[in-house]
Amino acid sequence: MKSLLFVTLVFFTLNLSAQQIPSADVKKMSGETVSTSTFQNDGKPMVISFWATWCKPCVKELNAYSDNYEDWVEETGVKIIAISIDDTRSSGRVGPYVNARGWEFDVYLDENANFKRAMNVPNVPHTFLIDGNGKIVWQHTSYVEGDEEELYQKILELAK
């Protein structure tokens, strides 16, 4: 009897640890539709950062990540996904904007804020850290210089 209870409990806990990123349709620069439920990084940590071309702190934040990205990937295998919430007024700028800045992240367009709503983001910038099981383990709203250090600490803890 006790063992049955135990098995049940194990199943419950197993399930709780296996989460998935909320599903919403976003677009690649080429206009191709991608479901956010397919976002994954082979069990390694993943950062999802919401930004817009018209948001100064967002661009500062992604510049700071970009400066460190090579080292971070090498040390932890982390992947950064940048979700632009620019609507069709400015979403056409995103491609060249990202290339000129030399950002190596995976960039997607969320022109009507479907994914932003699914992730309950009130304002940009807003950044989530996702563990290898797809669970949100940390988040941060707004950006000031130096915040990237806190994020990196959290990534290191996950990568251990």
Binding site: W54, C55, K56, P57, N123, V124, P125, S142, V144
Partner: peptide, 8 residues
């Protein structure tokens, strides 16, 4: 539009 302390 005002951007202060990281939010616009």
């Amino acid at each position: 539009i005002v951007c202060v302390g990281g939010v616009c």
